[in-house]
């Protein structure tokens, strides 16, 4: 779990929880109520600026300014040492035409399936089943299932590389059951390396989705289920007519978190395959690093970073739109 993905999900926020918002579904951030004049002892506005100044200065210097600088750099051809030359939108055109860069963005689509769609689907179905029964030992299960979220991805990468290794546990099992011919160095296989990396993402994110949905099912009133049962509906009807609609907010949050995870994955790919074999597992974040620090294509790296940011912002909007549309 990384900082930007959480904060982005926060910002996307999805529609506000239904308990807070009326049918009109108020949008935008909550704010202190407006009143005329100042309450007794209420600070003068200038005090507020003093409170936010330190945070805002740090934030502006080391986050906002770099974003602007990144955009500037993306318009130049620069090797990081000599004088750069104006390139206009060439670096952006390159993203659409260069096979390596195009592949990097294309791979994120596959990763979204493994990082986001599978964990959300599996997490929701399992949470719905588990929510139906009272279970002992839930704190233990929750702790265990959520654990992959807190382990450094560098550690996750090292661990899974062992699991996928030619003499690793997966191949040992295949040999043991006589499927020797299926055994291979999974991360070295042109066709299978990308799904293999994706599966690690599934491992990281499924627990998050499960715990998120489980918390959501706890808030569904039991009468809703009873109503379905009175109508003669079975577990599947319960799931489609009660559970799924009720978990809409959680789904928006889960999708935002996991899709962004998939888009900005770096540690995992860099440390398992570093984009290989060939270009078969490269992703935008790895291309940013390689272009800027290995190939001396700083402008191109910045353009990839800016494009990635725009895609993340757009997807955020799209996902929260889907959330609000389904609410109607």
């Amino acid at each position: 779990m990384s900082r930007s993905s959480t904060t982005a999900a926060v910002a996307a926020g999805g529609p506000e929880p239904s308990r807070d918002s009326g049918p009109s579904g108020r949008r935008g951030p909550r704010r202190p109520p407006r009143r005329r004049g100042r309450a007794p002892g209420e600070p003068h506005p200038s005090a507020a600026y003093l409170y936010i100044a330190p945070a805002l200065i740090v934030y502006a210097l080391f986050l906002l300014v770099p974003i602007g600088r990144s955009f500037m750099l993306s318009l130049y051809e620069w090797d990081g040492l000599t004088v750069g030359t104006w390139a206009g939108l060439d670096n952006y055109v390159e993203i659409a035409t260069d096979p390596g860069l195009r592949a990097a963005f294309g791979h994120t689509a596959v990763l979204i399936v493994f990082y986001a769609l599978i964990p959300v689907a599996v997490g929701m179905v399992l949470a719905a089943i588990v929510a139906r029964a009272r279970v002992r030992g839930m704190p233990f299960f929750r702790t265990a299932i959520f654990l992959p979220q807190v382990v450094a991805l560098a550690v996750v990468a090292v661990t899974w590389r062992d699991i996928y290794a030619s003499d690793g546990p997966i191949n040992q099992v295949l040999r043991f059951v006589g499927l020797e011919e299926l055994a291979r160095a999974w991360l070295g296989d042109f066709a299978l390396a990308l799904p293999a990396v994706g599966l690690v993402g599934t491992w990281v994110n499924t627990g998050l989705c499960f715990v998120l949905f489980l918390a959501g099912t706890g808030k569904i009133p039991g009468e809703l289920y009873q109503a379905v049962r009175v109508d003669g509906g079975g577990p599947i009807r319960e799931f489609t007519t009660v559970t799924m609609p009720a978990l809409r907010n959680e789904m928006v949050v889960a999708l935002t978190l996991t899709v962004i995870n998939a888009l900005r994955t770096f540690d995992l790919v860099y440390l398992t395959t570093s984009g290989g074999p060939g270009n078969s597992t490269t992703v935008p974040a790895v291309e940013v690093f390689r272009q800027a620090f290995e190939r001396g294509e700083v402008g191109s790296a910045a353009a990839v970073g800016i494009t990635l940011t725009l895609i993340i912002l757009a997807l955020n909007l799209l996902i929260s739109r889907i959330g609000t549309r389904e609410a109607r």
């Binding site: 990384s2 900082r3 930007s4 904060t7 982005a8 926060v10 910002a11 996307a12 951030p29 704010r31 202190p32 407006r34 209420e42 600070p43 506005p45 005090a47 507020a48 600026y49 409170y51 936010i52 805002l56 934030y59 080391f62 986050l63 906002l64 770099p66 974003i67 600088r69 990144s70 500037m72 750099l73 962004i260 888009l263 900005r264 770096f266 935008p284 974040a285 940013v288 800027a292 620090f293 700083v298 790296a301 910045a302 990839v304 970073g305 800016i306 990635l308 940011t309 993340i312 912002l313 955020n316």
Partner: peptide
């Protein structure tokens, strides 16, 4: 607290926090 520009400043922070490290690490370096 209520102060002029609070909403705009807050949105500025919201926009900024969606930006991934990848987009800022190059100019920062």
């Amino acid at each position: 607290m209520r102060f002029p520009g609070s909403t705009a400043l807050f949105y500025l922070i919201l926009i900024g926090i969606m930006v991934p490290t990848e987009a800022v690490v190059v100019p920062l370096y």
